[in-house]
């Protein structure tokens, strides 16, 4: 049997991801996480001196804190299994990637283990975020200087 024929057989037998079910679960889990964050933002706006815009920073930090607890107690991997992208895409998923790598690599010590590996999973997001932000901002700045667009 050649590779192409085998790939067809494999495609036929291997289970397909239940797309509709996965999408609905991702929507509900992701939406719920954002909704919880909205309540946390409300808390910061009500009890502290934050506006709708500035509340975003402490909200994000709080969400990551919650994510740390859920990851540490072994709950986040269950959220990720059920919610798929609904667990991975929100900032709590970023927190989960950082925290899970940190606690995993503690066995190699705090410097070589935790310190070196903490961004093992989340690092690529930062790298691509920074690089694309640089390109986008550069292009836009040049375009503004040329008078093509305005700020």
């Amino acid at each position: 049997m050649d590779k192409e024929k085998y790939a067809k057989l494999e495609q036929k037998i291997s289970p397909k991801p239940p797309l509709l079910k996965n999408v609905i679960k991702a929507f509900l889990v992701g939406g719920t996480i954002c909704l919880i964050a909205q309540f946390i933002a409300l808390f910061y706006m009500t009890f502290f001196n934050f506006t709708e815009r500035t509340a975003s920073n402490p909200t994000v930090a709080t969400m990551i804190f919650i994510s740390m607890l859920l990851t540490g107690f072994g709950v986040y991997k269950k959220i990720g299994q059920v919610g798929g992208a609904g667990g991975a895409v929100p900032i709590t998923g970023f927190g989960n990637a950082v925290v899970s790598a940190a606690i995993e690599h503690k066995s190699e010590g705090f410097v070589l283990g935790v310190g070196s590996n903490i961004f093992k999973l989340a690092g690529s997001v930062i790298v691509f975020g920074v690089f694309s932000a640089f390109l986008v901002a550069l292009v836009k700045t040049i375009l503004v200087k040329m008078g093509v667009v305005s700020w």
Binding site: V23, G31, C34, G84, V89, L121, F128
Partner: peptide, 25 residues
Amino acid sequence: VGGLICVIGQLLFDVAKLTPAHTLC
């Protein structure tokens, strides 16, 4: 809106067959 952005992520997982890291990037 939060849910829909996650749905896009899920489609990148399941339809485009990307890893979580590629999807998030």
